[in-house]
Amino acid sequence: NQASVVANQLIPINTALTLVMMRAEVVTPMGIPAVDIPRLVSMQVNRAVPLGTTLMPDMVKGYA
């Protein structure tokens, strides 16, 4: 099973992602693959992402 990107903290809307905000976890359903974490750094979320939420492609501006 491939790990997905999960929020390590509450990420407010329009926040630029940093490594500290994300962790890799095997979850269902799968979200953004953990291998993409370096690519996500400095991209912004388009909604508030609660702690423990799996990041989906439509939550990150410019990802999809």
Results as ranks from 00 to 15, higher is better:
21 M>T: 03
57 P>Q: 11
29 P>M: 12
21 M>C: 03
55 L>A: 00
39 R>A: 09
40 L>S: 00
50 P>Q: 06
41 V>Q: 08
37 I>R: 05
5 V>D: 01
16 A>V: 10
44 Q>L: 08
51 L>T: 12
13 I>N: 08
4 S>R: 02
8 N>W: 07
17 L>Q: 00
54 T>R: 04
33 P>M: 07
36 D>C: 06
30 M>V: 11
56 M>G: 14
53 T>P: 00
11 I>L: 11
15 T>C: 05
59 M>L: 07
28 T>D: 15
49 V>I: 11
14 N>A: 09
53 T>I: 12
38 P>Q: 08
46 N>T: 14
9 Q>A: 08
4 S>W: 02
37 I>H: 02
12 P>L: 12
56 M>S: 12
15 T>P: 01
53 T>C: 05
12 P>V: 06
45 V>W: 02
45 V>L: 12
2 Q>W: 14
4 S>A: 05
61 K>L: 15
62 G>A: 14
47 R>K: 12
47 R>S: 06
3 A>R: 03
33 P>Q: 08
22 M>A: 00
6 V>R: 04
64 A>P: 09
16 A>M: 12
30 M>A: 06
40 L>M: 12
13 I>Y: 10
31 G>S: 02
59 M>H: 08
60 V>K: 00
40 L>Y: 02
27 V>P: 01
40 L>D: 00
41 V>K: 06
50 P>G: 11
36 D>N: 08
37 I>T: 13
12 P>A: 11
47 R>N: 07
18 T>C: 05
13 I>A: 10
29 P>A: 13
12 P>K: 10
48 A>R: 12
26 V>E: 15
41 V>R: 05
58 D>V: 12
39 R>V: 10
4 S>Q: 02
32 I>C: 04
58 D>K: 09
21 M>L: 06
39 R>M: 11
34 A>S: 12
25 E>C: 04
34 A>V: 06
61 K>W: 09
38 P>I: 05
24 A>I: 14
57 P>I: 07
8 N>R: 07
19 L>K: 04
12 P>W: 05
29 P>L: 14
58 D>F: 11
19 L>P: 06
15 T>L: 04
16 A>S: 14
4 S>P: 00
9 Q>M: 11
45 V>N: 03
45 V>K: 00
52 G>C: 13
58 D>P: 08
44 Q>T: 14
31 G>K: 01
36 D>H: 09
53 T>W: 14
5 V>T: 06
49 V>Q: 02
48 A>D: 15
35 V>G: 09
23 R>Y: 03
3 A>M: 09
63 Y>M: 05
9 Q>G: 06
39 R>F: 14
51 L>P: 07
2 Q>E: 15
34 A>T: 06
56 M>P: 01
61 K>Q: 11
55 L>S: 00
11 I>Q: 00
62 G>P: 08
50 P>E: 14
4 S>Y: 03
24 A>K: 08
55 L>V: 13
19 L>D: 03
55 L>D: 00
63 Y>A: 04
3 A>D: 15
50 P>M: 10
63 Y>D: 03
11 I>A: 01
6 V>A: 05
52 G>E: 12
52 G>Q: 05
63 Y>V: 03
42 S>E: 09
40 L>V: 09
26 V>F: 06
37 I>C: 05
26 V>L: 07
43 M>R: 06
8 N>E: 09
33 P>T: 13
32 I>N: 01
62 G>N: 14
16 A>W: 09
28 T>R: 03
63 Y>H: 04
59 M>T: 08
16 A>E: 05
29 P>K: 11
46 N>V: 14
35 V>K: 05
47 R>C: 05
1 N>A: 15
4 S>E: 01
64 A>V: 10
51 L>W: 10
10 L>C: 15
52 G>F: 06
10 L>W: 09
18 T>K: 05
45 V>T: 11
54 T>N: 02
8 N>G: 14
6 V>H: 02
36 D>Y: 07
36 D>R: 04
1 N>C: 06
8 N>K: 10
34 A>G: 12
5 V>N: 01
49 V>L: 09
37 I>W: 02
20 V>S: 14
9 Q>P: 01
61 K>I: 12
43 M>H: 05
32 I>V: 12
6 V>T: 08
40 L>R: 00
9 Q>N: 09
27 V>Y: 03
23 R>I: 05
30 M>T: 12
1 N>H: 11
15 T>I: 07
20 V>I: 14
34 A>F: 10
28 T>S: 14
17 L>D: 00
4 S>L: 01
8 N>Y: 07
22 M>F: 10
18 T>S: 09
44 Q>H: 07
53 T>H: 10
48 A>Y: 10
1 N>P: 15
16 A>L: 09
49 V>R: 03
2 Q>V: 14
60 V>Y: 01
54 T>K: 04
15 T>R: 10
58 D>G: 11
29 P>E: 14
19 L>C: 04
26 V>G: 11
38 P>S: 12
19 L>S: 05
42 S>D: 05
26 V>S: 15
14 N>S: 08
17 L>T: 00
35 V>H: 13
25 E>H: 06
41 V>L: 14
48 A>L: 09
4 S>T: 11
26 V>T: 12
7 A>F: 01
23 R>S: 07
45 V>Y: 00
39 R>N: 05
30 M>W: 07
52 G>K: 10
43 M>A: 12
22 M>H: 00
3 A>K: 04
11 I>V: 12
19 L>T: 05
15 T>G: 07
15 T>S: 06
12 P>I: 07
42 S>V: 03
44 Q>R: 10
54 T>A: 07
41 V>E: 07
17 L>G: 00
46 N>C: 05
26 V>Y: 11
22 M>S: 00
40 L>A: 01
32 I>S: 01
28 T>Y: 06
13 I>K: 07
24 A>T: 10
49 V>G: 01
42 S>K: 08
21 M>A: 04
10 L>H: 11
30 M>S: 13
46 N>D: 09
44 Q>A: 08
35 V>S: 13
24 A>H: 10
25 E>R: 03
40 L>H: 00
58 D>N: 15
40 L>Q: 00
16 A>H: 08
24 A>V: 11
55 L>R: 00
5 V>Q: 00
46 N>F: 12
42 S>Y: 13
48 A>F: 09
51 L>M: 15
14 N>W: 08
3 A>H: 13
56 M>D: 07
28 T>C: 15
51 L>E: 13
53 T>S: 07
26 V>D: 15
12 P>T: 10
6 V>N: 02
45 V>P: 03
63 Y>G: 04
58 D>E: 14
45 V>R: 00
2 Q>N: 09
35 V>C: 05
12 P>M: 08
50 P>I: 10
46 N>Q: 12
9 Q>S: 14
22 M>Y: 02
37 I>E: 02
44 Q>P: 12
34 A>K: 04
19 L>N: 04
36 D>W: 06
